[in-house]
Simulated scan of single mutants.
Amino acid sequence: MKSSNPVLGRISAAAQQPRYSVPGQGAPAGYPQADGQGYGYPEVVQTGHADRMTIDDVVVKTVTLLAITAVSAAITWALVPLEMVRTVWWAAAILGLVVGLVISFAQVTNVAVIAGYAVVEGVFLGAVSKAYEYLFEGIVLQAVIATLGVFLAMALLYKAKIIRATPKFMKVVIGIAAGLGIVMLVNVVLYFVTGSVGPLRDGGPIAIGFSLVCIVVAALMFVVNFKQIEDGVAAGLPRKYGWLGAFGMLVELVWMYLEFLRLLSYLQGDD
């Protein structure tokens, strides 16, 4: 799993200030400490409002990335023969992991790089989805509906302020998500070494429980991303940071979709 989108903390200072920090604010992923309190923020170029990040702009960018991913997935599904699916699956997964980590830690806002990531994720999802659909007819549509349903539910809960992304909430959720990412990465390495998926992915009770935990954490990561995007808008960040917000949403949607695929496959039978 890739890290969450590193878009910034809320501030109340005027947008004309070249640098911001908020004492006691929760840590946006990937940003350094500033003066021993709060977190440092990248310099905000003094531009007109048209050149600043907005919620609507992030929504458009997110939809754009999802469309690129969907088209790439559809092409992969249609063109890659079933016997080549697993090879394409793993190649795209490894490339996507590397590119995703580079985007996250280097805070890349280049449109071509992030769009390229969406293409790679589409290839990965197309191969994975074709394999699962071959084994469990109808499972892809179920996973898509479940993923979108959870996303919309979390968006409504956040909008209604039923779930609040406090600094402590963000630190805990990001920490748990990072821990799960490490566990999953170790499990993949063990799979390549031993040839066994282990109890976390074998379809048994532990695997079902692990997927449920991952789905819950992925849902809470939506709230973290909503807050980071909202704070980036409040900070008056340049529009290019909207691509990082969209990237973060794509990462979480892909993760949740994969976990729903796994969970539904466990409930329908052995992989």
Results as ranks from 00 to 15, higher is better:
Val7Cys: 04
Val186Cys: 05
Ala146His: 01
Ser4Pro: 11
Asn187Gln: 12
Phe222Val: 02
Ile215Leu: 11
Leu264Lys: 03
Val189Leu: 10
Leu212Glu: 09
Lys161Ile: 01
Ser21Tyr: 06
Leu264Ile: 13
Tyr31Asn: 09
Tyr117Asp: 10
Gln46Pro: 08
Lys2Tyr: 12
Phe169Val: 00
Thr87Phe: 08
Leu79Asn: 04
Val71Pro: 07
Ile55Gln: 08
Lys168Pro: 12
Val113Ser: 08
Asp231Ser: 10
Ser196Cys: 00
Glu137Val: 10
Val60Ile: 15
Pro205Trp: 11
Pro238Lys: 05
Phe105Ser: 02
Leu244His: 08
Ile11Leu: 04
Phe192Ser: 08
Phe260Ala: 00
Glu43Phe: 14
Glu121Asn: 10
Ala50Asp: 15
Pro28Phe: 11
Gln25Leu: 06
Leu65Asp: 06
Val128Ile: 06
Lys61Met: 11
Ile176Glu: 11
Thr54Leu: 08
Met184Tyr: 06
Arg86Trp: 10
Gln46Val: 10
Lys2Thr: 12
Leu200Ile: 09
Ala143Cys: 07
Gly116Pro: 12
Val102Met: 15
Ile206Met: 14
Val173Asp: 12
Ile229Pro: 01
Ala29Arg: 11
Asp51His: 03
Gly245Cys: 11
Phe124Asn: 05
Gln228Pro: 01
Ala143Lys: 03
Tyr31Ser: 07
Ile139Lys: 05
Val197Leu: 10
